[in-house]
């Protein structure tokens, strides 16, 4: 019994170490004065300052942000409407099943297949619409396509949790269609919509595979830039950039944790 507990504890702590030792060592070495090697030459912010003076990195970070904001806005809008449309109207069973399948498709297909499909789609569109080049536009379309189903699924689970009692009560009190929708359904749904939007935003910032396939030469995002620089070798600037991305991740996780707690009351 005790041996067993010990084994569980040891494996668990080992797993956490295993998850954190590489990232933490990158963080530590990002503030090291030395450019090469393991030697600690003293604390320095210089890699961070050189990062913030690098116009390319600033542009790339801006690209990431623009894509994330626009695609999240579009996906949240479309996804919420889609969730409402699927859940709140009397569709025949077959149609409901087909829509369900379509929405689940991006969740279970490997990203790389979606990416390949999008590449094909864009090349066909290019033949139909001249001037449709790989760029921010294609990147945003690609992101919305997978975000859409995640938003829809999150909002739908909230809709399912709401049930229909409140709608019926509102009807009994002579609420009009518009009043019911804007004053009852939407406010109750808001936490689900916010959670969906947060998820979509994080997924967009985090995405590598689909961006890698659908970006153009002047629409590089942070993960793609990072990947390209890593292929050129290890450097303290990459340490610094990785550390910043890590910090943004920690911030987003904390933020949505807070939101979730706020939501729960």
């Amino acid at each position: 019994m005790i041996v067993q507990r010990l084994v569980v504890a040891v494996v668990a702590i080992f797993s956490l170490f295993f998850l954190y030792v590489p990232s933490l060592s990158v963080v530590v070495f990002s503030v090291n004065q030395a450019k090469y090697g393991l030697v600690w030459k003293g604390f320095s912010w210089k890699w961070y300052t050189s990062l913030f003076h690098n116009q390319i990195i600033l542009d790339v970070a801006l690209n990431s942000l623009v894509v994330a904001v626009i695609s999240t806005a579009v996906a949240t809008l479309l996804g919420t409407a889609l969730a409402l449309g699927m859940d709140r109207f009397p569709w025949p069973k077959r149609l409901a099943a087909a829509m369900n399948f379509l929405v689940h498709l991006p969740v279970v297909t490997p990203d790389i297949i979606l990416a390949a499909a999008l590449v094909l789609c864009f090349s066909l569109l290019r033949q139909l619409v001249p001037g449709f080049e790989m760029g921010l536009m294609t990147l945003i379309i690609g992101h919305v396509t997978f975000q859409l189903s995640f938003v829809t699924l999150v909002v739908r689970s909230r809709l399912a949790a709401l049930g229909r009692d409140i709608d019926e009560a509102a009807r009994d009190l002579y609420a009009s269609d518009f009043y019911l929708f804007s004053r009852v359904t939407l406010p109750l749904l808001a936490p689900g919509i916010i959670a969906g939007a947060m998820l979509a935003f994080t997924l967009s910032l985090d995405d590598f595979i689909i961006s890698f396939f659908t970006h153009g030469p002047d629409s590089v995002t942070l993960p793609i830039y990072l990947y390209a620089s890593i292929r050129r070798g290890i450097s303290p600037e990459i340490h610094a950039l990785s550390t910043l991305i890590l910090l943004v991740t920690v911030f987003l996780v904390l933020l949505s944790e807070r939101l979730a707690r706020f939501r729960a009351g």
């Binding site: 956490l16 590489p22 910032l205 993960p223 990072l226 990947y227 991305i245 920690v250």
Partner: peptide
Amino acid sequence: LVMIPFWTNIVVRAYAWLFI
């Protein structure tokens, strides 16, 4: 502590291994 790596970019994490 488990959630942070869940959301950390895969390129960042691969790079960390490359470094270590």
